[in-house]
Design a protein around this nucleic acid. Sequence first.
DNA 1: CTGATACGTTAGTAAAGGCTAACGTTTTAC
DNA 2: GTAAAACGTTAGCCTTTACTAACGTATCAG
Lengths: 111, 111
Amino acid sequence: MPDLLEVAAEPNRRKLLQLLAAGERSVTSLADHFSVSRSAISQHLLLLADVGLVEVRRDGRNRLYRLSPGGMARLREQVAVFWTQELDLLVADAEALARSTPRPSRLTDPD
Amino acid sequence: MPDLLEVAAEPNRRKLLQLLAAGERSVTSLADHFSVSRSAISQHLLLLADVGLVEVRRDGRNRLYRLSPGGMARLREQVAVFWTQELDLLVADAEALARSTPRPSRLTDPD
DNA sequence: CTGATACGTTAGTAAAGGCTAACGTTTTAC
DNA sequence: GTAAAACGTTAGCCTTTACTAACGTATCAG
């Protein structure tokens, strides 16, 4: 499934991306932060590489993974596409309402 | 699966949220925009309601769904939590590099 | 060379997810 | 009353997904 958002949304992969935000890391070094097997982490990383969110570099017997800036930029754009202006306005309205007295501004409740 | 991001990431549910951004809609009115059955759409809507992204109102024999501003605000926050400053800086860097001449700034390729 | 480390790869399993089809309930029209 | 419309609900199917375990390969130490 090459849907960028779905791939990035999975909790373990989200955590992997967060860890990689700090810099290059080897597979076992990453796997240490999870309860699942190293093999599982490896497969997640390969999937992330497939959709272009991470890149690999070989260093001796290690594979050092790092975020792909280009891929992450594409992700950012996808999120922006989803989050249209209408959604933005709606949320902004909700937050303003939450901060003020719960008195509806323009919606006079009919009946 | 009560993971907000995963629930919102699924393509059909994403499209539902987009449609609902325009305002209240009935189930069949929404289902008209999809190739899958009305039952499938109903189940997606129920899941969206479960995680608090949408709300329902009964009107005669219709159920009018609408976005839950509070839920969408929570989603926005979750995205923001994922998208840490480090990720932001990385992407900004990548975009700047993409716009300029592809001449690596600080990485002198060794060997 | 031998052995250990760090991976990817594969097979196989178990569970989750999305879907359709059929049914039940409430509401509206007649 | 009957019939139809608009839903939710359930059962079952089928595909995908996440995972473990075992194996194969390349690299480094000795």
